[in-house]
Simulated scan of single mutants.
Amino acid sequence: MNFIKHVFLLLVILLLSNCASYQDSVYLRNDEILDTVKQKYSLFEYRIMPKDELTITVSTTTPEASAPFYRKIGMTKGQNGIGQGMDNAKLLDYLVDNEGYIDFPVLGMISVAGLSTRECEAVIREKLQAYLNEVPNVTVRSSSYKVSVLGEVARPGTYRVDDEKITIFQALAEAGDMTLFSDRKDVHLLREDGQGRRKVIHLDLTEANIALSPYYYLQQNDVVYVKPTPAKVHSNTFTGNASAWITMLSLVTTVVSLIMVITN
Rank of each mutant, 00 (worst) to 15 (best):
S17C: 11
D35K: 08
S21C: 14
R29E: 15
S25G: 04
A20M: 11
V26H: 00
V26N: 00
L16W: 05
Q23L: 14
D52G: 13
S17I: 14
E32F: 15
D35T: 13
L34K: 01
K40S: 00
V37M: 04
V26W: 01
F44V: 02
E45S: 12
P50A: 08
Q39R: 05
C19R: 08
Q39Y: 02
S25L: 08
N30T: 12
C19E: 03
E45L: 07
I48E: 02
K40Q: 00
C19G: 07
F44S: 01
Y41L: 03
L15T: 10
V37T: 09
D52K: 10
V26Y: 02
L34G: 02
L43F: 08
L28T: 13
L16G: 01
V37I: 12
N18R: 02
C19Y: 12
I48Q: 05
N30R: 08
T36G: 06
N30Y: 14
N18E: 04
K51A: 03
V26F: 04
K51P: 03
S42F: 08
D52Y: 08
Y22G: 03
M49Q: 11
L15D: 07
K40N: 00
C19W: 09
V26K: 04
Q39P: 02
N18A: 10
Q23H: 07
Q39W: 04
P50G: 10
E32P: 05
D31Q: 04
T36P: 04
E53P: 03
S42P: 10
P50H: 11
S25W: 03
L43R: 09
K38S: 01
Q23M: 11
L43E: 14
L16P: 02
P50K: 09
S42T: 11
L28H: 07
I48D: 01
Y46K: 01
L43K: 13
C19Q: 11
Y27A: 09
E32G: 09
M49G: 06
I33V: 15
E45Q: 12
Q23C: 07
Y41K: 04
